[in-house]
C-alpha cells in the first residue's frame, strides 16, 4: 500500500513526540527534577536519554568532563597578593605550539644578565590558538593548563597577557581534580626522593 512507509516513519516521530511528555511525567511522578539539576542534565546526556534533549544553556550547563579544554591559562601558587608563577619560561610551550601563538619574554638578571626562571612577559594570542592542548601536555612544570571557561567572547581581539592568563592553583584543582592530585602526588614523591637523597648525602659526609 502506498503510504505505508510514510506512516511507519510517522510512528517514529509520534513516539518521539509522546516521549517528551512521558519522560517528563515519569520524572515528576518519581518526585525528581528533570530540569536545572545536575542529575537531570546527566540523564539527558546518557544512553537512556529520551524525550527533551535540550540542555538550556545558560540556565543549566552540560557537565564538562575533566579533560575538556578550551584556551590555556597559567597556574600560580600562593595567593592573589603574592603570586608564585609556576612558569619558568623554559620555552617548551612556545616551541611546541603548532600555530606559534605563545610569546614569552624571559627575565634576565639585571646585574649578571643571566636568565632567571620567571617569565617577564607572557602572551597567548587567543585569536590564533587552536585549543590543541600541546602546551599543557608538554609543559614540564605543570605551569600551563587548559581552561574550562568558554564564555570568553568579547568586543575586541583577544591577546591575553600574563595578568589575564594567571589563575590560581586552587582553580586548577577545582576544574581538574584528578589531574591535580596526580601531579601533586608526583611532585611530593619527587621532593621526598630528593630529600632522602640529600639526607643520604649528608650522612655519607
Amino acid at each position: 500500500m502506498y503510504g505505508k512507509g510514510i506512516l511507519k516513519g510517522l510512528s517514529v516521530t509520534w513516539k518521539r513526540f509522546w516521549d517528551t511528555y512521558l519522560d517528563d511525567i515519569s520524572w515528576w511522578v518519581r518526585g525528581k527534577k528533570r530540569y536545572y539539576t545536575t542529575e537531570g542534565v546527566a540523564h539527558r546526556s546518557s544512553k537512556d536519554a529520551r524525550g527533551i534533549f535540550t540542555v538550556q544553556y545558560p540556565e543549566e550547563q552540560l557537565i564538562q568532563p575533566e579533560e575538556f579544554r578550551f584556551v590555556p591559562f597559567l597556574v600560580f601558587d600562593g595567593n592573589e597578593e603574592n603570586k608564585e608563577v609556576r612558569c619558568t619560561s623554559c620555552g617548551i610551550c612556545a616551541k611546541v605550539c603548532p600555530p606559534q601563538c605563545i610569546w614569552i619574554v624571559r627575565t634576565n638578571d639585571p646585574n649578571t644578565g643571566k636568565p632567571v626562571p620567571q617569565p617577564a612577559e607572557f602572551y597567548v594570542d587567543m585569536d590564533i590558538c587552536m585549543n590543541c592542548g600541546f602546551c599543557a601536555e608538554y609543559c614540564p612544570f605543570d605551569a600551563i593548563k587548559m581552561d574550562h571557561e568558554f564564555a570568553i567572547a568579547s568586543y575586541d581581539r583577544n591577546v591575553y597577557n600574563l595578568e589575564k592568563l594567571l589563575k590560581p592553583a586552587s582553580y586548577y584543582a577545582e576544574i581538574r581534580p584528578l589531574n591535580y592530585n596526580k601531579e601533586e602526588e608526583a611532585r611530593k614523591a619527587k621532593e621526598a626522593a630528593k630529600a632522602a637523597k640529600a639526607a643520604a648525602a649528608t650522612q655519607a659526609a
Partner: peptide
C-alpha cells in the same frame, strides 16, 4: 612568511608580542 621551519625564533626567549 617568518621562517623556514617552526618553532620560530621570535617567540622565545625574547617574544614581545607583535
Amino acid at each position: 612568511f617568518e621562517e623556514e621551519t617552526k618553532p620560530f625564533k621570535s617567540r622565545w626567549p625574547d617574544g614581545h608580542h607583535n
